[in-house]
């Protein structure tokens, strides 16, 4: 079942079109929404929460229509805002408990869920101290806790890794992964950094200028290709074996692309693998590396981006 489904979703403001006929289908699991700043990510989240009407098109969240069933959606969904939104003078416990009450939980349940949730996001004794003294990583955990405290079926996380150092970023990404694997809650997470979603998400949706660039399972993005990378040792006499290997492989009928000391060899089927091995063996040079190449999402994104050069800068960030 899809947790989010949009159909030609369009949002026009007087001066800009934030979403342009966006049709996506988000299945259960962890899904990343990638796009540069201003690509329409926050607009999409607002529409999905039923807080902002779409100009055209339809959207359903957990099977509920955003236009007519917004209140029910907001009961079952958790939302973590992008920007700093925490009062500094109350403790994480007080704050998250208040937010649990604001989700309709009775006070006893709110207290229990708050303690549980803060523990799950990794806040321990510091949860009794005022939030003002927390690090960015701890604040992000509090924001995540308030989105999870009412046990939603889906959480929408807006740039949860923003402002975190590399270690904090990894911890947050692990936590996001666990929200699905351990808690059974689907996650829709936005980021302008493509790379970090690679290992966290099951699916990735790429948007740019409010348009869908690509929506795919992560494993398809990074699927294995029919390209092997071959690296060989120098010959016994000290000359470079790469030239000989290239010649031999081409002679064996395989297309070869040279990249310094690396040879990228395209193979059509299983036998190509054997051909490479036998050809190199026949030359008598040492085989240093024989590796199946995988796409990285970034490459796919770069490929798409060449058609949309205006966002090159953000791609460089990714």
């Amino acid at each position: 079942m899809s947790v989010i489904a949009t159909e030609e979703l369009t949002k026009r403001y007087p001066r800009v079109t934030a979403l342009d006929q966006l049709t996506v289908d988000v299945p259960e699991g962890v899904t990343g929404l990638v796009g540069a700043n201003g690509a329409g990510k926050s607009t999409l989240i607002k529409i999905l929460l039923g807080l902002s009407p779409a100009t055209e098109g339809k959207a359903r969240v957990l099977g509920l229509d955003v236009a007519t069933e917004g209140a029910t959606i907001r009961e079952r969904v958790g939302y973590m805002p992008e920007h700093d939104c925490l009062p500094p003078d109350v403790s994480a416990t007080e704050f998250v408990m208040h937010m649990a009450r604001m989700s309709g939980l009775p006070s006893t349940a709110a207290r229990e869920r708050t303690a549980d949730t803060l523990r799950h996001v990794g806040l321990y004794e510091e949860r009794y101290r005022p939030i003002g003294g927390y690090s960015t990583g701890m604040k992000q955990r509090v924001k995540l806790a308030q989105a999870l405290v009412h046990d939603p079926r889906l959480v929408l996380l807006d740039e949860p890794t923003n402002g975190l150092d590399p270690v904090g970023r990894d911890e947050m990404l692990d936590l996001i992964r666990r929200i699905h694997t351990d808690f059974g809650i689907s996650v829709f997470v936005t980021s302008h950094l493509l790379g970090e979603l690679e290992r966290t998400c099951d699916h990735v949706v790429v948007v740019d200028g409010g348009k869908l660039l690509r929506a795919q399972a992560t494993k398809e993005f990074t699927r294995t290709t029919g390209v092997f990378t071959v690296e060989v040792d120098t010959n016994a006499d000290g000359s470079d074996g790469t030239d000989d290997a290239q010649t031999a492989l081409v002679g064996a009928g395989l297309p070869v692309e040279r990249d310094g000391r690396l040879l990228h060899v395209s193979v059509a089927d299983e036998t190509g693998y054997d051909t490479i091995r036998d050809t190199i063996d026949g030359l008598g040079v040492g085989l240093v590396r024989l590796q199946q190449r995988r796409h990285r999402i970034a490459e796919v994104f770069l490929g798409e981006q060449s058609q949309a050069p205006q966002t090159e800068k953000e791609t460089a960030d990714a």
């Binding site: 929460l49 907001r74 958790g78 939302y79 805002p81 939104c85 937010m99 604001m102 989700s103």
Partner: peptide
């Protein structure tokens, strides 16, 4: 935003 992303 955290209030209004709830039923309130």
């Amino acid at each position: 935003p955290m209030y209004f992303s709830r039923p309130l």
